[in-house]
Amino acid sequence: MCLGIPGQITEIVDADNLIAKVDVGGVKREVNIACIVDDEHPAKSCVGDWVLVHVGFAMSRLDEEEAARTLALLEELGDMQAELDTMRQMEGQA
């Protein structure tokens, strides 16, 4: 019920009523963007934004940096572990 899906805004259809077109995995549909615009990020600057779409509304702008950070952290987790394992093995041998 609370599911959402990431999509990219391709055009602003109606700036007054805050309606934009979003591409979700190749499917295009109009969504309401009232929840992702403010004075600093008006409707016209939304084209190209990745957003989370839920029941016809763009509910959140995807933070690309945070997404990258999460993935990098997962990458590091394994690398660090591999290093620690190697260290332990070396210790065992010494």
Partner: peptide, 12 residues
């Protein structure tokens, strides 16, 4: 954090 801002969604 890529979707959830600390303060949530102001307009919502």
């Amino acid at each position: 954090a890529r979707i959830v801002p600390e303060a949530g969604n102001t307009a919502g």
